[in-house]
Simulated scan of single mutants.
Amino acid sequence: MKTAATQRSARLLSIATTVAAWAIAGTALAQGVLVPQAPAAAPQDTLTRAATSVGIKRCLPAITRLATLTVQGSRGHDVLLDWDRKRPDDGPMFSLVGIQYPNAGVAASITAIPGDGGSCTVSAERISVAPFTCQSVAEQELKDYQMTRLLPIYAVYSDPKEPTSSVSLIDSPPGCLVIRRYVEYGWRDPATPAAASAPAAAPAGQAPKRR
């Protein structure tokens, strides 16, 4: 006769086996696979582990760099992943990351698209809600940025020194919707021979940085 502890262990093993099968088959959701949250002590972020498990290799260093910076300091995070099942390492990868902080929740989107000659186009967006007016956020954090007004409630801020990054502020009383965006075309892994032989000043030789 099974004990209660044995029955609980069997149920947990069954759940873990089912989740693993979903991840491998890519059929957990119509859009993608929802990967279980990694333990706090895991050596890799959840997005890196998910991308690795489905066969994404070429853009993985860029994905890891952006994902690690995106979830830094969080209490936990989960990932919704979508990719080309037929060409996982040659097609685009899209992800939505839900991030939990002690006092707030944040969403992030990380995209990687393989290009010619081993390059990748990568982008990342971080979406949060500030419990302040957009004007106060701009005054405190974006003093040296140039502002472009798109709508009465929507303004985009950019720094001429970082043309691939922007911060969008959308009035949403009583707070402000903040979207920080970064994109880089022709990114190459500095560890690859092709990247190592490229001129030092070439933008393609730089790793993605947090904005």
Results as ranks from 00 to 15, higher is better:
residue 158 S to K: 12
residue 126 R to D: 06
residue 74 S to M: 11
residue 122 V to E: 03
residue 159 D to H: 12
residue 178 V to W: 13
residue 183 V to M: 12
residue 26 G to W: 04
residue 174 P to D: 00
residue 108 A to K: 03
residue 195 A to K: 00
residue 157 Y to E: 10
residue 169 L to H: 10
residue 69 L to M: 11
residue 79 V to Y: 07
residue 18 T to G: 06
residue 46 T to I: 07
residue 191 A to Y: 00
residue 174 P to N: 02
residue 108 A to N: 03
residue 194 A to W: 00
residue 123 S to E: 11
residue 45 D to G: 13
residue 191 A to T: 10
residue 204 A to T: 08
residue 110 I to A: 05
residue 81 L to H: 08
residue 160 P to G: 01
residue 47 L to D: 06
residue 17 T to H: 12
residue 42 A to M: 04
residue 122 V to L: 09
residue 204 A to C: 05
residue 158 S to F: 09
residue 113 I to V: 13
residue 140 Q to L: 09
residue 82 D to P: 01
residue 1 M to W: 14
residue 146 Q to T: 14
residue 174 P to R: 02
residue 204 A to G: 10
residue 139 E to T: 14
residue 57 K to H: 09
residue 74 S to N: 13
residue 49 R to M: 03
residue 154 Y to S: 14
residue 120 C to M: 04
residue 115 G to D: 08
residue 133 T to Q: 05
residue 27 T to V: 10
residue 87 R to N: 15
residue 123 S to G: 15
residue 38 A to D: 03
residue 196 A to H: 00
residue 35 V to W: 15
residue 127 I to K: 10
residue 61 P to M: 04
residue 153 I to E: 12
residue 102 P to L: 03
residue 195 A to Y: 00
residue 173 P to T: 02
residue 165 S to M: 11
residue 80 L to N: 14
residue 5 A to F: 11
residue 130 A to K: 10
residue 136 S to G: 03
residue 8 R to Q: 07
residue 136 S to V: 15
residue 174 P to L: 05
residue 123 S to Y: 04
residue 170 I to R: 14
residue 85 R to L: 10
residue 164 T to K: 06
residue 126 R to G: 09
residue 134 C to N: 08
residue 136 S to N: 11
residue 101 Y to C: 01
residue 30 A to R: 14
residue 168 S to V: 10
residue 73 G to E: 00
residue 94 F to I: 10
residue 195 A to W: 00
residue 43 P to T: 03
residue 95 S to H: 04
residue 60 L to V: 04
residue 150 L to V: 08
residue 52 T to P: 01
residue 172 S to G: 04
residue 188 R to Q: 09
residue 160 P to T: 05
residue 26 G to N: 05
residue 20 A to K: 08
residue 141 E to A: 15
residue 132 F to Y: 14
residue 63 I to Q: 02
residue 17 T to K: 13
residue 91 G to D: 02
residue 94 F to R: 14
residue 67 A to K: 02
residue 88 P to W: 05
residue 172 S to I: 03
residue 151 L to D: 13
residue 175 G to P: 01
residue 76 G to N: 13
residue 176 C to E: 06
residue 3 T to K: 13
residue 42 A to T: 08
residue 81 L to Y: 11
residue 193 P to I: 03
residue 81 L to E: 09
residue 3 T to G: 12
residue 59 C to V: 07
residue 13 L to N: 15
residue 96 L to C: 03
residue 26 G to Y: 05
residue 75 R to C: 06
residue 29 L to M: 12
residue 161 K to M: 11
residue 7 Q to H: 07
residue 209 K to S: 08
residue 39 P to E: 07
residue 148 T to D: 15
residue 36 P to I: 12
residue 176 C to I: 08
residue 138 A to L: 05
residue 174 P to A: 05
residue 176 C to L: 04
residue 28 A to S: 14
residue 92 P to L: 03
residue 131 P to F: 04
residue 90 D to I: 02
residue 207 A to S: 09
residue 154 Y to F: 15
residue 100 Q to W: 09
residue 130 A to G: 05
residue 178 V to I: 12
residue 191 A to P: 00
residue 29 L to C: 07
